[in-house]
Simulated scan of single mutants.
Amino acid sequence: MFEDQLQAVNELITTNSEFKVLHDRHYELDEKVSELSTGPIDDFTLEKMKKEKLLIKDQMAAILANHTK
């Protein structure tokens, strides 16, 4: 995620608490989605987590865009 802006992402993780919380939650959801995708889980729960993950990514992208201006 945001591989082309890795330096800015790392800077935001250390300087912007909101971005760090979003980053940590996104990572947590990514791990859960990957783990649960291979086992039995209801589709509603999996889709809910995927949507939350996308929302967080959009929020992170907005913060990143403001940071790199």
Rank of each mutant, 00 (worst) to 15 (best):
M1T: 09
M1F: 06
M1I: 09
F2Y: 14
F2D: 08
E3D: 14
Q5V: 08
Q5H: 15
L6W: 12
L6F: 09
L6M: 10
Q7W: 04
A8N: 12
A8T: 07
A8G: 11
A8I: 09
V9F: 01
V9N: 02
N10A: 03
N10G: 04
E11T: 15
E11W: 06
L12A: 10
I13G: 03
I13C: 08
I13N: 10
I13E: 04
I13H: 02
T14Q: 11
T14V: 13
T14G: 11
T14E: 14
T14W: 11
T15R: 09
T15I: 03
N16V: 00
S17M: 09
S17V: 09
E18N: 10
E18C: 09
F19M: 06
K20H: 07
K20A: 15
L22K: 00
L22I: 02
H23I: 01
H23M: 04
H23Y: 14
H23A: 15
H23V: 00
D24Y: 02
R25C: 04
H26D: 11
Y27V: 12
Y27C: 03
E28Q: 10
E28P: 01
E28S: 10
E28F: 10
L29A: 14
L29M: 11
L29Y: 07
D30C: 05
D30S: 04
E31Y: 08
E31T: 09
K32Y: 10
V33K: 01
S34M: 06
S34I: 04
E35V: 06
L36D: 11
S37I: 07
S37P: 07
T38H: 08
G39R: 14
P40D: 09
P40R: 06
I41A: 14
I41V: 15
D42H: 03
D42W: 06
D42E: 00
D43K: 12
D43M: 12
D43E: 15
F44Q: 13
F44W: 12
T45W: 01
T45E: 12
T45N: 07
L46K: 11
L46I: 03
E47C: 05
E47Q: 13
K48I: 02
M49P: 03
K50R: 15
K50T: 03
K51C: 04
K51G: 11
E52Q: 08
E52V: 05
K53W: 03
K53R: 15
L54P: 01
L55I: 09
L55V: 13
L55T: 11
I56F: 00
I56E: 00
K57G: 05
K57A: 07
D58R: 03
D58H: 07
Q59G: 06
Q59M: 02
M60F: 07
M60N: 01
A61F: 07
A61S: 13
A62P: 04
A62T: 10
I63E: 00
I63P: 00
I63T: 00
L64V: 01
N66D: 08
N66P: 03
N66Q: 13
N66V: 05
H67G: 08
H67M: 10
H67E: 13
H67C: 07
T68W: 01
T68R: 14
